[in-house]
Design a binder for these strands. Structure first.
Lengths: 166, 166
DNA sequence: CGATGATATATGAAAAAGAATATTTCGTCG
DNA sequence: CGACGAAATATTCTTTTTCATATATCATCG
């Protein structure tokens, strides 16, 4: 086996390739499944940004809350849970933690006193601002490699999956 | 307000619509983000099947393991974790539970004794068989409403997102 | 009005996941 | 050969999540 200057990094690459190959072997099987491809795509697209969230001391569920409230402040707990794709009890507890941090506030809905409306506090909006900017930048970064046509294909595909062909 | 026979179910529908509307209000915001759309699509596509998993007494991570091993038996723990989109320590614990249930076995890799190769036991394969058939059926069910062209669009979009435009 | 069933949120105990790190084996280089 | 850094898996401690259910309010109907 020839020794090269960068034997170590070459080896690292070889090992990564070996893992990719082992994973790939089943690729033809798993990758034919829509659920799997979507999970993989979702993970790839989100993981980069999720990694950056710790910079702002936000957990992923906390980010989701902030993200949802940024577009629709004053949602109820259940609505927020549905929008953030989590269960209601989990959302209640995420909100407990965020309330302790002073990021969100709870309001009783006057029209229906069972409902609890959630809003970002001033501190919450302040913490959210840079994160939301980063999210926008991440979005741009993700789409950068694609042509307008490709972007349209992607959006159309997701629209089909989410809203059906209606 | 007119009273009808199905006032109750009409009301239920009205409430669901109200929630959808509250959620929708922010739609124009959140739904412009690729990460969000992918997460939503992934959830929609997977949740139906995930709900059925309890029929077979399998958790979602257990299903993922079974699914991956079905296509590539004898993967290492790390490879399996990467393929199943979870961290290695989590995979180790999922495998602990599955080993206790007799679904999988651990083998030392003779070539590299750090690695632990995972394979389905006979019992595991038996438990897996109907689940994998159901997964296949679910896949067909998901794709049924779409034309061949639409399916191609979806696959192409996901391929772009996962493998880039290489 | 008052009972009854439904809906919205919260709670509590048990299970699972996360983060950091330990342990074992490898590969390389002196 | 032997030390040293890297890689694969396991473990430990803490936090989060899940599952089932409790509580409070609402809507309907007798």
């Amino acid at each position: 086996m020839p020794k090269r200057r960068s034997a170590a990094s070459a080896d690292r690459a070889r090992r990564a390739a070996a893992r990719a190959s082992r994973v790939k072997k089943s690729g033809s099987f798993a990758e034919s499944y829509l659920s799997y491809l979507l999970a993989r795509a979702s993970h790839i697209v989100a993981s980069g940004f999720h990694a950056k969230l710790k910079t702002w001391n936000l957990s992923v569920p906390e980010y989701r809350v902030v993200f949802c409230l940024a577009g629709a402040d004053g949602l109820g707990v259940g609505d927020l849970a549905a929008m953030a794709i989590m269960t209601q009890p989990r959302m209640t507890k995420v909100l407990d933690r965020m309330e302790r941090q002073g990021l969100v506030g709870r309001h009783s809905d006057d029209g229906d006193r069972r409902r609890v409306l959630i809003h970002l506090t001033a501190a919450g909006r302040k913490r959210a601002a840079p994160v939301l900017r980063a999210a926008k930048a991440h979005e741009a970064h993700l789409l950068a490699p694609f042509t307008a046509e490709e972007r349209a294909v992607i959006k159309h595909a997701l629209d089909l999956l989410i809203n059906g062909r209606a």
